[in-house]
Write a protein that binds this DNA or RNA. Structure first.
Length: 462
RNA sequence: GGCUCGGUGGCAGAGUGGUUAUGUAGGGGCCUGCAAAGCCUUGCACAGCGGUUCGAUUCCGCUCCGAGCCUCCA
């Protein structure tokens, strides 16, 4: 039984599908005007894991994650760089997908773009006007928040208190301070589309309401995104999608479960432009394998804040190295892929609101058992480790390759083999000073050697 | 000011009303010419103060500290 924490209600609850033959999930994707940072990656990895887990339980999962390719930050950036906004967004959409793939994130089944759904957004806005949830004022269309009684149900906010504590300047054309824009005018040099309310562009919440309905139908099972999207983005989506169909008393007529991942902080500090500590996947991938980055993201529970530190990355790297070493030692054991089975205790941990730290602890315990296991037990353990790895998206590489055995980026293999031969010659002659100096020389070139009972083997330091 | 969520061993990070988390880093040992790798073994912990309890790190209250949202944000 899968349990997930539902922000709509703030408690962990059993996942009961709307239609168990097709689980439908929508994750708010990136606004593509820059490289993806590690926070974007955490969202993608958390949802990827959820989808992978759902796929092991249910026959079909439809995973939708959008690309926001029109918004004011995009417009600003394209103006500043003097390139058409479409060129900008297509470029970073491509980079985003490449970066996520390097983290082992499987592509969503559908990745809709906001600009391909302008008509749907216009239709949705028309419905909201017709249902008296929206009004037209000074070329804007605004959602009237007091018309939606359940407003605040997701973020547990009381409107009056919000207004009192508000530090936001309120646009003069709003009937109510909480009203938000569905459609706004664009001047000639700003991207826009023709609409019944003139040339303009959508407000930023509207796209997800339109695209989720179009791609998944209403209601769907899970809606996800970063914690910060809870308010106002997801709150407004609920208002729009429920208001369009006059289901204002039933937020679950839009999406049943709300799944939100926590933030990434960097070396104990908030990740922000002003501190200048934004970690881009594009840069990290030059220094660490995607698998290491993925494991680092999975090493804390998805709802907890994740402290991204050099130490935490190295820890993940060391853990993977150790596990790959175990697998390398089991290299000569052939197993049938179809016999893979994720052990019950690890399934249970993952089904308990994606408790990845617990699952990883169990994985380590499983690996610890190898040294004291019989040959037949080792077959089972190897299969289980690979099955777990497949589920959570790690350990699928060739162990020798991953560990760097037998290939070098610096010295060529013949030179290395030659030096090892000389060293072993020296060892036979008990000339350990020479032997050790050869080893040191190799080490300085990034080559580590291991003397085993089957001879000397070498690997590049990872 | 309002709403959420946290404070666990050097570090990372689960969990539990009484029993080992796990990893990583350290200590000791085996192996090795010495290493590396592996194996065995071992410290170190539950922010503070009250309360409930036979017993609390785990439940309740308060205090202190921290994070996020309330404005664009994953």
């Amino acid at each position: 039984m899968l349990k997930i924490y539902n922000t709509l209600g703030n408690y962990k609850e059993e996942f009961v599908p709307i239609d168990s033959s097709n689980i439908r999930i929508y994750a708010c994707g990136p606004t593509v005007y820059n490289y993806a940072h590690i926070g974007n990656a955490r969202m993608a990895v958390a949802n990827d894991l959820l989808v992978r887990l759902l796929r092991t339980i249910y026959p079909k999962v439809t995973y939708v994650s959008n690309i926001t390719d029109i918004d004011d930050k995009i417009i600003e950036t394209s103006a500043k760089k003097n390139i058409p906004f479409k060129d900008l967004t297509r470029k970073f959409e491509k980079i985003y997908n490449e970066d996520m793939l390097s983290l082992g994130v499987l592509p969503p089944d559908i990745q809709p773009r906001a600009t391909d759904h302008i008509n749907e957004m216009i239709e949705l806005t028309k419905k909201l006007i017709k249902n008296n949830h929206a009004y037209i004022k000074e070329d804007h269309v605004l959602f009237h928040v007091p018309s939606f009684k359940k407003y605040g149900c997701l973020s547990k906010r009381n409107r009056e208190e919000q207004i009192l504590g508000s530090r936001v300047e309120i646009a003069p054309f709003k009937k109510d301070p909480a009203d938000f824009v569905l459609w706004k005018p664009s001047s000639n040099n700003v991207p826009g589309w023709q609409s019944p309310w003139g040339f303009g562009r959508p407000g930023w919440h509207l796209e997800c309401s339109a695209m989720s309905e179009k791609t998944l139908g209403l209601p769907f099972d899970i809606h996800s995104g970063g914690m910060d999207l809870t308010f106002p983005h997801h709150e407004n989506e609920i208002a729009q999608s429920c208001g369009a169909y006059n289901k204002t008393n039933d937020p679950k007529s839009f999406a049943k479960y709300w799944f939100h991942n926590g933030f990434v902080i960097v070396e104990g500090e908030k990740m922000s432009k002003s501190i200048g500590n934004i970690k881009l996947v594009h840069d990290l991938i030059n220094n660490f394998s995607g698998e290491v980055l993925r494991l680092t993201l999975l090493s804390s529970h998805y709802r907890q804040p994740l402290n991204w530190t050099v130490d935490s990355i190295n820890q993940s790297k060391n853990m993977l190295t150790r596990l790959y070493r175990e697998l390398k030692d089991l290299d000569d054991i052939d197993i049938n892929n179809s016999d893979y089975k994720v052990p019950d205790n690890i399934m249970a941990a993952l089904c308990d609101d994606l408790n990845t730290p617990k699952a990883l602890a169990e994985l380590n315990l499983l690996a610890n058992k190898i040294s004291s296991s019989s040959a037949s037990e080792k077959i089972i353990i190897k299969g289980e480790i690979l099955a777990i790895g497949k589920l959570i998206g790690i350990l699928q590489d060739n162990p020798k390759k991953w560990l760097g055995y037998g290939h070098s980026e610096g010295l060529d293999n013949d030179t290395i083999e030659g030096l090892i031969k000389n060293r072993n010659e020296a060892r036979r002659n008990k000339n350990f000073t020479l032997a050790d100096s050869i080893r040191d020389e190799l080490k300085s070139k990034g080559i580590e050697i291991e003397d085993t009972k089957n001879g000397t083997i070498w690997r590049s330091e990872i």
